[in-house]
Structure formats: C-alpha cells, structure tokens
Amino acid sequence: MPNGEHQTALEPHHGAGRYVAVWVALCALTVGTLLASRLSLGPPWHLLVALAIAAAKAGLVALFFMHLWDQPGVNRLVFATSLVFVALLIGLVLLDSATRFPLANPPNERTLRFEPPSFETHVQPGEREQGEPGAIGRPPARE
C-alpha cells in the first residue's frame, strides 16, 4: 500500500491540439529570436533578449511537452533545484572573473574594465618623475 504521496488522481490528459499550439509558439519564438539578432541591439541587450527568448522556449518545452504543468510537485522541485545550481555556478564564477585583479585574467579586450581600487592605487603618473624608470631602492618623493 503506498502512502499519501501516490494518492493524486490520474494526471489530466489534454488533447493533441495543445501540443500543436505549443509547437507554433516555439516556432514563432525562434523566428523572433532570429529577427531580434538582426536588429543589432548591441551589448548587453542582444544577449539578454536572446537568452530571455531561449528561456521562454525552454519553459514551454518543460511545462507542456515534458508535462511539468500537470505533474506532482517533486518533479518540478527537482528541475527547479538543478536550475538554481546552474545559476549558482555560472553566477559566482562570472563574478570572480569580473572582479579579479585585472592582470590575473588572461590578456583580453576587457582587461581594463572593473578595475578594483587595489590596482588603481599602484603608481600614479608623475610619481616617478624624480627618478629613473622604476626607481628602486628609494621611496618615490611624495608629500
């Protein structure tokens, strides 16, 4: 005898029309994302728009083709949990790259953005004017 978890009624069974409607929506969204990419929205919008449309499509597939809409909560929970960890991994690793000491990233076009203050404080222009390049052994004349 199963316990309470199995006591849900048979899942509702929808007609085939619903699947076709979802398919039409998916195709429309694909055309949409293609058109949006032609618009040259520029960063970061082109990325956000494309990912938002992809997420919408993925949502449709998961909810209707994969029946998450009808099924017991635990399956939804499993899927949602996996997405939380996807966001966690990508988010924190990206954050690291974005806030690192700039030279600790590989040489790239973005090295200069997101400079932490530690890097700014390195050597200011004019500070070394008194000495030879990279004056060593003598603190720069300052204040």
């Binding site: 997405l83 996807v86 991994l89 990508i90 690793v93 790259s97 590989p106 076009e109």
Partner: peptide
C-alpha cells in the same frame, strides 16, 4: 543539466573575457 552546466560555465567565462 548539470553535466552541460560545466560547459555553459566555461562558455560564460570565455565569452565574457573575449566578447568581441
């Protein structure tokens, strides 16, 4: 999903670093 996440993470980082 998490298997592919390893790759998506690598993609995010390198895309961020080498966007152009």
């Amino acid at each position: 999903v998490l298997l592919f996440t390893g790759l998506f993470t690598a993609y995010s980082i390198y895309r961020y670093l080498y966007a152009g």
